[in-house]
Design a protein around this nucleic acid. Structure first.
Ligand SMILES: [Mn+2]
Ligand SMILES: [Mn+2]
Ligand SMILES: [Zn+2]
Ligand SMILES: [Zn+2]
Lengths: 158, 158
DNA sequence: ATGAAAATGATTACCATTTCCATTATAGTT
DNA sequence: AACTATAATGGAAATGGTAATCATTTTCAT
């Protein structure tokens, strides 16, 4: 969209470098694409967007970069059931807030929501503590998914 | 294990038939395998188990049956991140209780848990109501996932 | 500038799942 | 029981997202 997000990347770059990775042109643009999108992009979608700005990029590099970003926690990788992974910046100018997803079982689109997060956090914190003790499981993250039919698909399916 | 679950299938068969599908030998055995397992089986794992009882079965039929079972809600289909779908009976002698999962990000195994379900149900009911109104989204189910390292992998990774 | 290490991209391989299609089983009707 | 329309099946081939290979290029500390 605009270039107002430009500032948001600065710390992202730093965090990427901080993990010991070199910030190359391709990686830089991949980060920009992620930071400037409010969608849940697939690897191929990211590839096309990056390619329009930097035609030398290879799909392999996109996959490799996304793997790094996922492993370092800078990006969340999701499976919403449409046969391809979906990626989203874990923090940033738009996606700063912790959120969860509504997934349409028909069109496979995901809607972000942040409602009820406070109560949820409270419950999850408690649950997390109990579970990690009971199962001796070191919890590092969580995900809440609601499945159903989006407004559009409700009408279409009827 | 034992054959005490034999009774559990009766209503399953009925529910399957009730959806307008013919209960063939292959489908029957697939249901038995699911009902007698407490694991999260992949299509191939199910195929091998069925095959040992009914060698005529084809992997295609397993996939097709699992798709029917998933669409009719008799079976839950999960992606725990190991590159293949995992299936679990949604109700039945063992899996009657509503539960959620701890997923090891290393070995990709899933642990069932039923702790804190009461509080969770309460919160989710409220959340569900709020979300379905706000987004005009018809919610049909939900899933809570905790990610982390299982006891075994904590030691191995170290 | 130089060299070791990291990164890249084109190609190929992989592999879970789907599609195709000819054959067979099912269940209702005569 | 024979007929028939329809559903189900299974083997083979195709599909498609992702991972591995490898020769080449880029990066960065020296
Ligand atoms: Mn999101
Ligand atoms: Mn389970
Ligand atoms: Zn939809
Ligand atoms: Zn593990």
């Amino acid at each position: 969209m605009h270039n107002r997000q430009r500032n948001g990347q600065i710390w992202l770059y730093g965090k990427f470098r901080g993990c010991g990775y070199k910030l190359t042109m391709g990686r830089n643009i991949i980060l920009n694409v992620l930071a400037n999108s409010d969608k849940h992009l697939s690897a191929e979608e990211i590839y096309f967007k990056v390619h329009s700005l930097y035609p030398n990029i290879g799909l392999t590099t996109v996959y490799r970069t996304l793997e790094i970003l996922t492993n370092t926690g800078l990006v969340f990788k999701f499976d919403f059931g449409d046969g391809r992974a979906r990626y989203e910046l874990s923090q940033g100018p738009k996606g700063t807030r912790h959120h969860h997803h509504l997934i349409c079982t028909n069109c496979k689109r995901a809607i972000d929501y942040t409602d009820f997060i406070d109560k949820e956090i409270e419950l999850l914190k408690e649950t997390e503590k109990g579970l990690s003790e009971k199962f001796n499981f070191k919890i590092s993250g969580h995900q809440i998914l609601f499945y159903g039919l989006c407004e559009k698909c409700q009408k279409e399916i009827k």
